[in-house]
Lab assay of single mutants.
Amino acid sequence: TRVETATETAWISLVTALHLVLGLSAVLGLLLLRWQFPAHYRRLRHALW
């Protein structure tokens, strides 16, 4: 049971790290898009909202 718990903890930390990385890359990508294509971003936002 001790090994299982350790594996579970490792998986949880791995998944958390993955989610953090994905979230950060998504935010960075959005910022980059907004910085590179302001007109396109505004049009996209206008279409979405």
Rank of each mutant, 00 (worst) to 15 (best):
T1E: 07
T1I: 11
T1Q: 12
T1C: 07
T1A: 13
R2A: 12
R2P: 12
R2M: 15
V3Q: 01
E4P: 04
E4Y: 06
E4C: 04
A6Q: 09
T7N: 07
T7F: 06
E8P: 09
E8G: 09
E8I: 02
E8A: 11
T9H: 10
T9S: 11
T9R: 12
T9K: 10
A10F: 09
A10P: 09
A10H: 11
A10E: 14
W11L: 10
W11D: 06
W11H: 11
I12D: 02
S13F: 15
V15D: 04
V15L: 11
T16A: 11
T16P: 03
A17F: 06
L18E: 00
L18Q: 03
L18A: 06
H19K: 04
H19A: 15
H19C: 15
L20T: 09
L20S: 07
V21E: 02
V21M: 12
V21Q: 00
G23L: 15
G23S: 08
S25T: 10
S25K: 01
S25C: 11
S25A: 14
S25V: 14
V27N: 02
V27H: 04
L28E: 02
L28S: 09
G29C: 12
G29M: 11
L30K: 00
L30G: 10
L30I: 12
L30E: 02
L31K: 04
L31E: 02
L32D: 03
L33W: 07
W35I: 14
W35Q: 14
W35A: 15
W35K: 15
W35H: 14
Q36E: 05
Q36T: 13
F37H: 05
P38D: 05
A39L: 12
H40M: 14
Y41F: 10
Y41W: 15
R42G: 09
L44M: 10
L44Q: 02
L44P: 02
L44K: 04
L44R: 02
L44E: 02
R45C: 07
R45D: 03
R45E: 02
H46Y: 04
H46I: 02
A47Y: 13
A47T: 08
A47E: 02
L48G: 01
L48Q: 00
L48V: 07
W49S: 05
